[in-house]
Measured scan of single mutants.
Amino acid sequence: MPSETPQAEVGPTGCPHRSGPHSAKGSLEKGSPEDKEAKEPLWIRPDAPSRCTWQLGRPASESPHHHTAPAKSPKILPDILKKIGDTPMVRINKIGKKFGLKCELLAKCEFFNAGGSVKDRISLRMIEDAERDGTLKPGDTIIEPTSGNTGIGLALAAAVRGYRCIIVMPEKMSSEKVDVLRALGAEIVRTPTNARFDSPESHVGVAWRLKNEIPNSHILDQYRNASNPLAHYDTTADEILQQCDGKLDMLVASVGTGGTITGIARKLKEKCPGCRIIGVDPEGSILAEPEELNQTEQTTYEVEGIGYDFIPTVLDRTVVDKWFKSNDEEAFTFARMLIAQEGLLCGGSAGSTVAVAVKAAQELQEGQRCVVILPDSVRNYMTKFLSDRWMLQKGFLKEEDLTEKKPWWWHLRVQELGLSAPLTVLPTITCGHTIEILREKGFDQAPVVDEAGVILGMVTLGNMLSSLLAGKVQPSDQVGKVIYKQFKQIRLTDTLGRLSHILEMDHFALVV
């Protein structure tokens, strides 16, 4: 994948999101292997301009796509893939009243899908469409860049269908997702969380590099694949309309690839034109409109599966009536509230959605109805927002919020430890010299600072030695090549209790 991002070429006709291997024109390309080798690009942008032909009021008969309808489940399912879809609609009884809503608040519980998330729908649909058009064949390999849930859905379907599955996901995604993927037989590649989507090191860039190296491999490409919004247009939206008897006044959905909100909203605009569509985008993402909503100094966020630093091709923002931004604290607070007060075992993005819903639905009156999409299960986040310690460490809970008995030293300040200034190293000294210094002084790690004293990161003896043994660096290389740029900081005025929580999850903390 090139470091400079080429513009994806656009073909003359058809839909841009065809499933299957992508040609340089962004659509299915038939021909000899030699032709494909000559024409197939190194990668295709996940934010390529959409060429979708959908228009409100256009006859369904003019759609270029294969459409399906929700099917009634048999008493005995032939395999677990038949437990994807037909998820329950559940009334939220307490939270709406707590925040003064007059309307009825309903939750579409997508964590009841077989793999635990709304992404099971698009995973199965992308595979079925690729099999139907002859792209996927027995023994082929599926590769997908994902925040985890699409990966789980694909790995689940691949396990049943017999495909090899490789999932490329950023490091910030939970260990629970990784464990589930491994249990399903998927191979996992992790990428830096802070890598831009168009960087060769991003999950998108690495996935395309693997595709170019592995024979008979395919990126189904949830960011561009029409099967993504079509899955929701054909099934999720129809289920909502049936469950609500066609009567709903507002739908609120958090947005990642945009397939969920695009597919549902398009069908609702056709069948229930008075329904307002509300999009939820986390602070630090750029999906919301108008652009002024996205202006923030924050560039990272903890909530998973929603928000991006690019506009995915499948996201149709014209069908969203209003956007709201959400933050991590309210997302996790509301997710825990949904679990504790409503018994809905949902993930953090569901918290984002409901946090926005109780604001947006203030305009609705008694007798009206708001539906929220709860995308995934708490299963993926047992060591994250479900953990009091994690919430404390991230600053989303305060010590006084917890009532468990603490040891005698818990409320003492870090400054009472009488710490001395640490050994520091410059980023320009060599790895070999740094190892000598650390061994001589008896230290395992040291902060790396520039000549102005600005902290650049941390270097550890173990990481340097393993990097040297693996051949990633040489003793003569500058130590700046092996620094940890993500590390926890703590102030002298913070409590030892807070430091204790940090050290339970990290090997060190830097006192500043």
Rank of each mutant, 00 (worst) to 15 (best):
P2N: 11
Q7S: 11
A8K: 11
A8I: 10
V10S: 15
T13S: 04
G14R: 08
C15V: 08
R18F: 08
R18C: 06
R18P: 05
S23N: 04
S23A: 11
A24E: 12
S27M: 15
S27T: 15
S27E: 13
S27H: 12
E29F: 12
K30S: 06
K30R: 15
S32D: 04
P33C: 07
P33G: 10
P33Y: 10
E34F: 14
E37N: 11
I44V: 14
P46Y: 00
A48S: 13
P49H: 07
P49R: 09
S50F: 02
R51D: 07
R51G: 09
T53H: 09
G57C: 12
R58C: 09
P59M: 10
P59K: 10
S61G: 03
H65C: 00
H65Q: 05
H66W: 09
H67W: 04
T68M: 03
A69K: 10
A69F: 15
K75V: 14
I76K: 13
I76R: 02
I76T: 03
L77Y: 08
L77K: 07
D79G: 10
L81P: 07
L81Y: 06
K82W: 10
K83I: 10
I84H: 08
D86R: 10
P88A: 06
M89E: 04
R91A: 08
I92F: 12
I92N: 01
N93W: 01
G96W: 11
K97D: 15
G100K: 08
K102Q: 15
K102I: 09
E104N: 09
E104K: 14
E104D: 14
L105P: 04
L105C: 06
A107D: 08
K108L: 02
C109L: 05
E110F: 02
E110P: 01
F111S: 00
F112K: 04
N113G: 09
N113C: 07
A114R: 07
G115Q: 08
G116D: 13
G116Y: 13
G116I: 12
K119T: 00
K119A: 05
I122N: 08
I122R: 02
M126A: 07
E131S: 14
E131T: 04
E131W: 00
D133E: 14
G134I: 04
T135E: 04
K137L: 15
D140V: 09
G148D: 03
T150F: 01
T150C: 01
A157R: 02
A158C: 02
C165S: 06
C165I: 05
C165T: 05
I166L: 10
I167T: 11
V168I: 07
M169W: 04
P170V: 04
E171C: 04
E171R: 05
K172P: 00
K172E: 07
S174W: 02
S175V: 11
V178W: 05
D179S: 08
R182W: 06
R182Q: 08
A183K: 02
L184G: 06
G185N: 02
G185E: 06
A186K: 00
I188D: 00
T191N: 05
P192Q: 06
T193S: 05
T193V: 12
N194G: 05
A195T: 10
S199F: 06
P200Y: 12
P200R: 12
V204K: 07
V206P: 04
A207N: 00
W208Y: 08
K211V: 13
N212Y: 04
N212M: 12
E213K: 13
I214K: 02
N216R: 06
N216W: 05
S217R: 02
H218Y: 10
Y223K: 01
S227D: 10
P229M: 01
T236W: 00
A237Y: 01
A237S: 06
A237N: 01
D238V: 11
L241R: 08
L241S: 02
M250D: 01
L251N: 00
V255L: 03
V255Y: 03
T257C: 00
T257L: 05
G258S: 02
G258N: 05
G259R: 00
I261N: 01
T262M: 07
T262D: 01
G263H: 00
I264L: 15
A265G: 13
A265T: 13
K269H: 06
K271Q: 13
K271Y: 06
K271P: 05
K271T: 15
G274E: 11
